[in-house]
Design a protein around this nucleic acid. Structure first.
Lengths: 282, 282
DNA sequence: GTCGATTACGTATTACGTAACAATT
DNA sequence: AATTGTTACGTAATACGTAATCGAC
């Protein structure tokens, strides 16, 4: 069989036209290429070049060979990538979610069940998540709607509800409930990466002034100033992560709750059965 | 990029299970394979084997890699075959015909028009010829019917008619015409490789006794004995290649003439235009 | 002791570089 | 003179072999 470096050099010659240019592109000397091409012809036992004085040119067969060789080399590269991807998937679990909260539940379970594996998380919209799971870019995804894909195993996961956290000095402080209409013109502090909730805000709270903060400490401080409203999810509140000097006032609206769905590929269900078992039961 | 010999050795290890067996199968020593596999792991920078004492085994990634490598190597082999086929087609013209006579016309024209190329001829039945032209196993074919293929350029070529050559001593010597019915029970000397004419004889002359001869000199001698009838085509007769002591008696039947069709692939017509020009005009 | 893999070391191959040369432009 | 390819020769890398060693049956 022909060694790879010979094919690489052949392709370089085809690409650059001359031995000099090909040699330069590969950081080797011209005589090296010259000999390699001779060796190729010797091994194949057919003419690949027409050699006039001072010029060497690929003949038809040589060009055909070089083009095929280029294809083969790209297939080889592709193969190596596949091997790396395969290996990575053996020691890493990629989890995608449309919002960050589900990670709070998922990550601890995954790291304890798959101690020897690394866990990668990423927040994306539902469409990308579903596409990603199909392509095995994700092994687990959390969406805000049922993907209803026959290749997926899907189960209802957790729910998350939004309320408003109101500072003492704010006129809403004594309200029992707050409607989306109330919120028009209000300033609202939110965390940068809230995934699907960002769309939710834009859809249900037109005319609101968002102040996004990309750092969790800065977020806490900004809320602590007591100058503006902020959203607080029941999950955050239950964990005690909200500002206790502010009052949590429920929203008076239908869609204040999102139901999350956890999915994996049916192929992989046996591998992640325990994950579903631990998370879905309660 | 990974050199081919490393992939070959990896595939051998996968196939034979142990380094010893793999080494033996490749006629190299175990330490050589051992080092190659280490080098592969080094270059890839991932684990491919689980090494217990006394045993080395491919892990999942290693097996995946080896399987992909085997695919790649077979693609490489396939590529080399393609290159050889391409090269061969550049310096050889393969011509197929359903009978030998068309070669008498074709070969001289081809060898003079394509002096630097070799010409390969082969007699086969129409179906194989058409299939062969599709697959470019033939560049030109002569069939006894119009292939009517939209990828082919086809032109009516020559015609060939059969008559009976009758020895002086034979009772048919004074007949004006001979019908297929007359031929029943007669002995008939024919050349071995007459292609489509063999089918023609079986179809139109049931109950005839064929004596096939595979050597042209032997054929002439056998006919010269004057013991049996033989077929003589107008082409052979016009060339003066028939036995002049015998009488050529026409057949009294419809299908005594075959019309030949010459075809090439439309793609290649520009290349063979001159061939058609020289052969079809008269 | 046998078998399979690794380690150590030596060798032969060979891929590559440098230098000189030949042949065009 | 500058550019391109080949030839000649030397060198460094390396693929492979032999022999010894380790560990498990």
């Amino acid at each position: 069989m022909i060694e790879t470096y010979l094919l690489e050099q052949l392709v370089a010659v085809r690409k650059h036209g001359t031995l000099v240019a090909a040699a330069e592109s590969m950081n080797i000397s011209q005589p090296a290429i010259s000999k390699s091409m001779k060796k190729l012809e010797d091994m194949m036992d057919i003419q690949l070049f027409v050699r006039t004085n001072r010029k060497i040119e690929l003949n038809k067969t040589g060009m055909f060979f070089a083009d095929r060789a280029a294809e083969l080399l790209s297939q080889e590269e592709n193969m190596l990538e596949q091997v790396y991807a395969y290996d990575r998937n053996l020691r890493n679990i990629s989890v995608g979610s449309c919002a960050p909260i589900p990670f709070w539940e998922l990550t601890p379970v995954l790291t304890s069940l798959f101690a020897e594996m690394s866990v990668t998380t990423r927040t994306e919209d539902n469409d990308h998540l579903i596409k990603g799971l199909k392509q095995n870019l994700y092994q687990l995804i959390v969406t805000s709607c049922d993907p209803k894909n026959s290749d997926f195993y899907t189960a209802k996961f957790i729910t998350e509800s939004m309320s408003v956290s109101v500072p003492k000095s704010h006129p809403f402080y004594n309200l029992e409930k707050i409607t989306p209409k109330d919120m028009q013109g209000q300033f609202l502090i939110v965390y940068n990466e809230i995934g699907i909730w960002e769309d939710w805000i834009h859809d249900h709270f037109p005319g609101i002034h968002l102040m996004t903060v990309s750092d969790t400490d800065a977020l806490r401080d900004a809320i602590g100033l007591g100058a503006a409203l902020s959203f607080v999810s029941d999950y955050v509140a239950n964990m005690g992560y909200h500002n206790k000097e502010q009052k949590i006032v429920p929203l008076d609206m239908e869609d204040k709750t999102i139901t999350y769905f956890l999915s994996c590929r049916k192929k992989d269900y046996s591998k992640y059965r325990k994950v579903f078992g631990r998370l879905i039961s309660r």
